[in-house]
Design a protein around this nucleic acid. Structure first.
Lengths: 229, 229
DNA sequence: TCAAAAGTGTTAAAAATACACCCATGG
DNA sequence: CCATGGGTGTATTTTTAACACTTTTGA
């Protein structure tokens, strides 16, 4: 490889904000740093970009290495380039955010013995580097995104109830939603397949299960349809 | 500076999509490359990020150096990291987009004798690197942005007519807008100051001039107001 | 039989859309 | 006096918002 200039250059990293949802809360996956700087502090999974991989590949690789997670919705968020954001040296970081279904994605014992855990977004510990800012940016993006694109389904199991769907929106948007209006609107779009199944193991009336119809969504979108909550 | 790892590392650059608007069209500022690769080909203004400047500072510096432009609306767009996007070596580029008022921003003779010129967005020449993709991404972002944030004013002179404002939206959104409904809506937001001035040097009835009330917008936004076209 | 969540329609208010003519000015 | 764009209001349709009770089920 020809290096065309020999000035000192910024290093390039990726960081990932992985969102998950359980009954209580919207959560984020953090790993505990094993080495300085910020040793022992919680941080976003991430690491340096290698010379022969794209940014997205780097993000997926780091997630796999640090948390064992695979096959998730991933989208570029923003690139953070403040000069002093890493106390050791200049590091510019391309942040990604991911959405996973907590049930499908158990955290593996991290291969390098680092601790990984889910934290509620409204009860985060102090984070390393500028990761608090990155998380805030991701939350804002997620909030803006779910209302005009059907990405929220990535946080739910493939089969879900309308109440689960509504709770997801309520958690992300941080506001209550009217049950009847919500059902009218979401069912009216015709993007949910009503299944012949209901919840099991609940101690009350079992709710009907639905599935998001990805194919139908793509078809409608090509004809100018715009999803909107 | 301590370099904590010694693998080959990606280089980091910035590229800028500068939008301008005239009577005819939405335009983009391009510079003609004086050196290989893509010698003679038109490209976005941009260059490598220095070790002691933020990404935004790098973007502003490159714009100043290559086009003489200063004091413009600038926002990060997306980071492009395909492995082969620069044929020489690995370069990851953080793209920005800028909005300027064509009247206020004459292009200076570029300091290093490179050619700079405005091109209509729907009549662009073949571009260097992946710059066509970057421009497409910027157009999409701009289209999405103007409808829920009042950034379009950056493309107009400080004093403008309602027809100029409407044309701006029509050019960006690529659809006709009803004149009466548009005026009703935009004036109804109360964000335009009606001035005691009218157009001069027009060969028909002179239109009233307005100014965007930035302070009022900030005040309203804090109280939960959301701009929307 | 009770507790817990599922499921279901209507009405009123607000917002969006469609639409056409007269006015002022300079050439 | 005419060509050019400036300026203006109403009626209709669509969308959003507010709101409460009955049903099903398992414990």
């Amino acid at each position: 490889m020809t290096v065309t200039y020999e000035f000192p250059r910024p290093n390039l990293a990726v960081d990932c904000v992985v969102f998950g949802l359980d009954e209580e809360d919207l959560k984020i996956l953090l790993i505990q740093r094993a080495i300085p700087p910020f040793e022992g502090r919680w941080a976003l999974p991430g690491g340096f970009v290698q010379i022969d991989e794209t940014l997205e590949e780097a993000a997926l690789r780091e997630l796999r290495e640090e948390t064992g997670m695979q096959d998730l919705f991933l989208e570029q968020l923003y690139t953070f380039g403040a000069v002093g954001r890493d106390p050791r040296e200049r590091v510019v970081s391309v942040a990604y955010y991911a959405l996973v279904n907590l049930g499908d994605h158990e955290i593996e014992a991290a291969t390098d013995a680092r601790n990984a855990a889910w934290f509620s977004v409204d009860d985060l510990p102090q984070l390393a580097f500028d990761h608090t800012e990155i998380v805030q940016t991701a939350l804002k993006r997620l909030k803006g995104k779910v209302i005009y694109e059907p990405v929220g389904f990535e946080l739910l199991p493939r089969k879900f109830t309308l109440t689960q769907l509504q709770r997801m929106y309520e958690k992300i948007l941080e506001r209550p939603i009217d049950k009847r209006n919500f059902r009218k609107k979401i069912l009216g779009m015709g993007l949910l397949q009503e299944l012949d199944e209901v919840q099991v193991d609940v101690s009350h009336r079992a709710a009907r299960l639905y599935r998001f119809d990805e194919k139908k969504y793509r078809r409608l979108r090509q004809r100018g349809f715009n999803f909107e909550i």
